Amino acid sequence: MTLNQWQQEGKYFQYRGHNIFYRDEGEGEVLVLIHGFPTACWDWHKLWPELTKRYRVVCLDMIGFGFSDKPRDYDYSIFDQADLHQAIWAYLGISRFHLLAHDYGDTVAQELLARFQDWQVSKTPDENGYVINSLCLLNGGLFPETHRPLLLQKLLLSPIGKVISYLSNERSLRKKLNAILAPDKQMSDDEWQDFWTLMKHNRGLAISHKLIRYMSERKINRERWVGALVNSRVPIRLINGSLDPISGAHMVTRYCELVPEAACDVVVLGQVGHYPQVEDPEAVLTAYLAFRSALFGRENLMKAKM
């Protein structure tokens, strides 16, 4: 599938007066995919054919990313991206699903998990309520204390972030992206062009300094978002590319320190960097399907005991 085909087969819906690109394909249990920064749901295209054979798969380009609108005067936040996901689920009539997230999407998933837990505790009916059946996370900054941002990310978050956004160019960004991939998993020219097309679409580079504010949000909301993981009753699997300098092996160590031992389900991909679903999609697919298979077996066992 080419990027053009991906776009042509997608659809748009309205969120707060803005066009949001999304894909909805397949049948069966719903699987929601959430992409990372600074790319788009195209990140999942290598997994898409196999996942849509098994599930109804839904993903979108979050506002400010990919083929969705990228308004200049907009208060970008993790909370708003979570609202956006709730909006499309209401639009599509979805209330129960499994989640698979990466990078920035991990943090959005943590907020969605926290909301789900809030409703479970309060037992207060909510017309926008939903049920998360499982959560699978790829490389991302789950813990602000272990996140090691690139210099470019730090500069975007600094007072000169707006200037850095406008000075960003294809050569420098490609170099930065390759630096977080495994040495033998560097992007081909064609792969890079797809990523570059998505980032610059609708003049997206000009708002990079606004999107990057999620790094500050992670620190402010650490108790809520880390707590959602630590206290989760939803089955969670972490699939991690250990060569990732941002959130690789060191993040896994912290994860296993904080998450109860019985719930610490981790699959380490030793020769993979920050983008596991792009660098080694077969390994990610194998690990994810094994996770879902184990859940299915657990559900059948519980039914048998009943």
Rank of each mutant, 00 (worst) to 15 (best):
T2L: 12
T2D: 06
Q5T: 15
Q7I: 15
Q7D: 13
Q8G: 10
E9L: 13
E9N: 11
K11P: 00
Y12W: 14
R16Q: 12
I20L: 15
F21R: 02
R23D: 02
D24K: 06
G26S: 06
E27R: 14
G28C: 01
E29G: 01
I34Y: 08
I34S: 05
H35R: 09
H35I: 10
G36R: 08
F37K: 05
T39Q: 12
T39Y: 10
D43P: 01
W44E: 05
K46L: 15
L47N: 06
W48K: 00
E50D: 12
Y55P: 00
Y55R: 02
C59E: 03
G66M: 12
S68P: 04
P71Y: 10
R72F: 13
Y74V: 08
D75C: 09
I78V: 14
I78K: 07
I78S: 08
F79P: 07
L84K: 02
Q86C: 12
R96F: 08
F97D: 03
F97P: 01
L100H: 03
A101L: 04
A101S: 09
H102P: 04
D103R: 03
G105H: 06
D106W: 06
Q110G: 07
E111N: 11
L113M: 06
R115T: 04
F116I: 01
W119A: 09
V121N: 11
N128D: 09
Y130I: 03
N133K: 03
G140S: 07
G140V: 03
G141E: 02
P144D: 11
P149D: 08
Q153N: 12
L157M: 14
L157W: 09
L167W: 12
L167G: 10
S168W: 11
N169W: 15
S172F: 14
R174C: 03
A179V: 10
L181T: 05
K185A: 07
Q186Y: 10
W192S: 04
D194H: 13
D194T: 14
L198P: 02
K200R: 14
H201G: 07
L205R: 13
L205M: 14
I207G: 01
S208Q: 15
L211T: 05
Y214A: 08
R222M: 13
R222T: 07
V226E: 12
L229D: 07
L229G: 05
L229P: 02
R233P: 02
V234E: 03
V234L: 07
P235G: 01
P235S: 04
I239A: 00
N240A: 10
G241S: 05
S242D: 00
S242Q: 06
S242T: 08
L243N: 06
P245Y: 07
P245F: 02
S247C: 09
V252M: 05
V252G: 03
Y255I: 02
C256S: 10
E257F: 13
P260C: 06
A262D: 09
C264R: 04
V266T: 05
V266Q: 04
V266D: 01
V267I: 14
L269T: 04
G273S: 07
H274A: 00
P276K: 04
P276E: 07
V278E: 13
V278L: 10
V278I: 15
V278H: 06
P281L: 13
L289W: 08
F291L: 00
F291N: 00
A294S: 10
A294K: 08
A294N: 08
L295R: 00
L301W: 14
L301T: 12
K305W: 15
